[in-house]
Each structure stands twice: as C-alpha cells, then as structure tokens.
Write a protein that binds this DNA or RNA. Sequence first.
DNA 1: CGACGTGTTGATCTCTCTCAATTAGAGTGG
DNA 2: CCACTCTAATTGAGAGAGATCAACACGTCG
Lengths: 245, 245
Amino acid sequence: MAETPCSLCPLKKSPLFLAHSPEENDLMQSLKRREVTLKPGETLIREGQTDAPLYTLIDGWAFRLKTLSDGRRQILNFLLPGDFIGVQQKMGDAAAHGVVTLTDAVFCVFQRDALWELHRRSPTMGFNITWLTAHEESLVDDTLLSVGRRSAEERIATLLILLFKRAAALQTDAGAGGVPFPLTQQHVADGLGLSLVHTNKTLRKLERRGLHQIVDGRLHMRDVKALARLADLYGDGRPPQRPLV
Amino acid sequence: MAETPCSLCPLKKSPLFLAHSPEENDLMQSLKRREVTLKPGETLIREGQTDAPLYTLIDGWAFRLKTLSDGRRQILNFLLPGDFIGVQQKMGDAAAHGVVTLTDAVFCVFQRDALWELHRRSPTMGFNITWLTAHEESLVDDTLLSVGRRSAEERIATLLILLFKRAAALQTDAGAGGVPFPLTQQHVADGLGLSLVHTNKTLRKLERRGLHQIVDGRLHMRDVKALARLADLYGDGRPPQRPLV
DNA sequence: CGACGTGTTGATCTCTCTCAATTAGAGTGG
DNA sequence: CCACTCTAATTGAGAGAGATCAACACGTCG
C-alpha cells in the first residue's frame, strides 16, 4: 500500500486544516514512521498497553474508551479525521484508555518521541498540539456534563447536535443530505452512560417526533431548533444568562 | 500584599514540582502579571466570560464546572496546587467552564499570550504544558467513566481514592492523619452526577462500614482495600485482565 | 435569637435498567 | 435458492437505583 507523503496529506482537503509551511511538512514527514489501516471495530490501542506511539487519524472515525473489569464500558469521545491520539501517555507508561475504530480508518504513526521533537523543532506546532489537546478535553467536558446532569432525551439531543457539527465541518461534499453517522445504538449508549434498550427507545421517540432521522448510516437533522432546546446548548459560547436562584 | 517571586514559588516545596532552570524561572517571572487571592466559594472564572487569562493555582483547592440554564451543574474536576487553568480557551473566546474556589486560594495570573510565549521561548516548558493538559484530560476521563458506568457506591469510593492520592502526593507534613478534604457533600454530588441526598446516604453507608471517615475537613482512609475493590481501579496502569465473555 | 449553610434520615416517585422476545438484514454454506 | 447464523434494531413488562419531597439537627454568625 502506497503511503501518502505529508505534503499530500488527505487532511489538507479538510476545511478545518491549518496551512503548514514547507518546513513544517518536512518536520512531520521526518517524524512519521508509517501508516496503519484498520477495519471497523478493530483495536488500535488496547487499554493498559505500554509504549503506544503517537497517531493521527487521517481518515475514518474511531473512539476512545475505558472499561471496568466486569465489562461495563464508557466511550470517552469520538475521534474524527485530524484528531491526535496518544498525547496522554508519557512514553513508557500504560495507555489509560483504548482506541477502537468505527469505520475503515487510516492512521498515521509517528515515532515515540515525536511529541517532544515537535515541540523542540517547531514551537508553533507544539502550541497547536497543546491547543488541540485542550480542545479534546473540552469535548470530554461536554460529555461529562451530559452524562452527569442531562436526562436521556437531553443527552441524545446533545450528542446528535455536537456530532453533526463536527461531521459537517469536515464535509467537503456539502448538500449530500445529512452527515455520515457510523455509530450503532450500542456506541451511543456507551458514549452517554445509558443502556442499549433505553437508548433505542429514546432515539425512536425523538425520531418519531420528527427531530432527526438516521438512515443508511447518515444522520439527518430535521428540527435543529427543537434538538437545541432539548440540549440546552448556549449558542456557541454565549454566556448563560440565568437567574441564579 | 507581597507577591512571591517565581524563584521562591511555594509550589517548589511540593514533592511533585519539577526543578526549573534559572532561565525558566526568569521566563515565568517575566510572564507573570500578578497574584489573586480568593476566599472559599468565590468565582475565578465565570462561564462564558471572555478573555480570561492563564492562571496557575498556587495554594488552596478549586474546581472547574459547567452549568445548564436551569441550574443543574456538573463539576468537571478538582484543581489542586500546581494545576494550570485556562489552557482551553483560545485567547478571545468565551470560557466553556467556570472556576470556583473550595478554600482560600492563591492564583498566579499570567499575561494573555503567556501560553504562546512559553512555547516559543522554552520548548521544554511547552512540552510540559501539553503533558499537564493531557493529564488533566485523563482526570476527566476517569470521572466520566465513573459517572457513566459506576454505581453511586463505586463512584464515591473512586472519588475518595483518587482525591486522597492527589492530596497525599502534595502533603509535606506526612503523618498528619488523613488529608485535607474541603468539599461539602454538595460538591461530591456535583462532581459525581448524584443528588445531594443520595450522596449523603451513600457516604454514610461507606463510613458506617468503616471504609473511610471525614472529620474536621480531613479525609481518613480506614480500609483502602475495600474502597479499591469497590472502585475497581486496576493498580496504577496494569492492564485489565478479564474473561471477555 | 433568628437566619443560613451543611448534614441526616424517612417516605415516595420515576427514570432508567434488566430481562425477554421478535423482526429485519447481511453473510455463509450446502 | 434456501436454511442457518449473527448483528443491530425494536418493543413490552417488571424491577430497582437513585431522584425528589419533607423534616429536623447542629453550628456559625450578624
């Protein structure tokens, strides 16, 4: 399988991708070791695995998860193209979470000390990584708020809106009707701390009410207003104004 | 109020503190703007606030939180001395979470572009910040697993163990009997996605069983084994070995 | 001394879980 | 082409963990 040079990285097609200087491309290229391609449901990183390298998700969807010893599991967040993987672990220690694919997926594998080299040789990219890491944390924050304090209906509405936004932002072919939605109901359940059955019932309820629709692995938003009302997201960063009592 | 120069930063007394070169001290010093001292329960950052600077928590405890418009709130994680605050927001955008103190607390305030300057002028410190950020995310990951998949008893056991470890690691005066525990039951509830009443009942149940004790704002672990069994934490990074059924 | 914050406990109520069964589609092999 | 198997989605029924409602105790404070 032919590997893509960083200068032709498919991520560049993404509207979210930041332009890089030729030097930055060379740097990335020099740290890149190879690519891995996985099929849906395959494990990229096993929980507790040591010495996992640094990855970038180039194409496809995946998720991070943690499990308890009796099998209960929680999906921490979903990974879309452009996301970094493995910034968490200091080299040498065990992965605190697993990473599993949702779709066919291609990962770019970097050498173990890439994180340090990146900082050392390009403060700009080092800074970007810090920011990306912080941003991923804020995704987990959102989910924690959902799981801790929102009802099942509200959680689902929130998940649909946030995933839709992320997926739509990556769309190159706009207007295709909805966005890809490769999650099974089990994934939704594991991502929201709900049981499979209750997830199904809630999803159907919202669908029957005409709020959304999931067909052929694509998510269509039918009534964003209503979903947003349920989710109680303040429109992109506007401060919550509420009577504090 | 006299401000402490970075070279005499009280954090240096902490066993967790990394030694810094004189140049790094100078760098921090040059980016530092001032200190803020807050009383318990005061707000350092309001949700939605714009232009919050970068802080370091020097002394005392605090927490990050998010709220819904009807007042439901979720504590995202607890902040102890040495933690960074505000890495999340790009300069100019709104804080996605608030920060409130639990005790008297002293924060070090840095200029707005400190994060970038730090990366630019010291890759080592830049690298450390990414790592700290990633580490904070892993704390949120732990909580998300708890809130999503653990029972009330298990959640509380997990919280007690993790907070005990963090607090103990900061202790300079060992053997003082327990560690400081400035949370009210309401904080525990908000941190674990439980109601106040149920938190109280569960806390009492564990206490009556002799697993722990909270007296005078200090937490004493009476039966760590039993708590760890409830929490189902694998001993510091050992991979979970289980029949996958 | 009354107001308030925190902790405690008992009595309901309900949202969500668990158990069970069924349907539909995709893939396999005979 | 048709049984057979698997996975994902669906629906109903009963059970339970945790929420909500209500009181009360205790200490601090203006």
